[in-house]
C-alpha cells in the first residue's frame, strides 16, 4: 500500500529544483535572444523554452544522452528546431551549426491524441500516476522511490507499481468497451 504521502511530486521537484533554476537562468536569455531576433514574443520564448527543456530532460533521462556541448547550447539548438516547426519558417533562414543540425525531435512529442485519457487517469488515480511517473518518466532509482513513497522495501514498491498498471489497464479496458475506436 502507498502510505499517505502529501505532495510527492513537489518533494521530487524541490530536490531537483535548484539545478533547474540555475539552468533556467543561464539558458533562457539565450533562447529568448534567438526568439526576439526572429520577431517572436516573450510568450513565444517561454513556450519554446519550456518545450526545449522537456525535450532535453527526456534525452538525458531516457537516452542516457550526454551532450558534447553545454546544456545551454543544446537548448538553443532544440529551440531553433521548435521555431522552424512552429512557424513553418524556412530552415535556411535559421543559421545552424553542424551540431544543431544533427538534433532530431521525435514526432511522438507533438502527438496530443491521448490528452483526455491522460487527464482522466491523472484525476482518478493520482497516486498511481505519481508512482508510475517516478518509475517511467523520471527514472528514479528504486531505493529513492521506496523512500519518497514510504514503502517498506523496494519489492513492495515494485509490486505496487504492477498493481497500479493493472488498475489503469482496467480503466482503459472499460473505456475501450465504451468507445470502439479507442484501442
Amino acid at each position: 500500500m502507498i502510505a499517505p504521502e502529501p505532495k510527492i511530486s513537489i518533494k521530487v521537484a524541490e530536490e531537483r529544483g535548484h539545478g533547474f533554476v540555475s539552468l533556467y537562468e543561464d539558458a533562457f536569455p539565450m533562447v529568448a535572444g534567438f526568439v526576439a531576433r526572429n520577431g517572436g514574443t516573450f510568450q513565444d520564448a517561454k513556450d519554446i523554452f519550456h518545450d526545449a527543456f522537456v525535450i532535453l530532460y527526456e534525452k538525458l533521462v531516457f537516452e542516457s544522452f550526454t551532450p558534447e556541448i553545454t546544456e545551454e547550447a543544446y537548448l538553443v539548438g532544440i529551440a531553433k528546431h521548435l521555431w522552424i516547426r512552429k512557424f513553418k519558417d524556412d530552415d535556411r533562414k535559421i543559421p545552424m551549426d553542424q551540431m544543431e543540425e544533427g538534433i532530431s525531435l521525435s514526432e511522438e512529442y507533438f502527438d496530443d491524441s491521448e490528452n483526455r485519457l491522460t487527464s482522466m487517469l491523472e484525476m482518478t488515480g493520482r497516486k498511481c500516476m505519481e508512482l508510475l511517473r517516478a518509475f517511467y518518466y523520471d527514472n528514479l532509482p528504486l531505493q529513492k522511490i521506496r523512500r519518497l513513497f514510504g514503502f517498506s522495501s523496494v519489492h513492495s514498491a515494485s509490486v505496487q507499481k504492477f498493481k497500479c498498471i493493472e488498475k489503469m489497464r482496467n480503466v482503459i479496458q472499460q473505456k475501450s468497451m465504451n468507445y470502439e475506436d479507442f484501442a
Binding site: 522537456v54 490528452n115 500516476m129 518518466y137 489497464r169
Partner: peptide, 16 residues
Amino acid sequence: WQRKIHSIVRRSGRRQ
C-alpha cells in the same frame, strides 16, 4: 494497453 499506459505516464510526466 500497457504500451498505452507507458505513453500516458510519459505525457503526465511532461505536464508535471
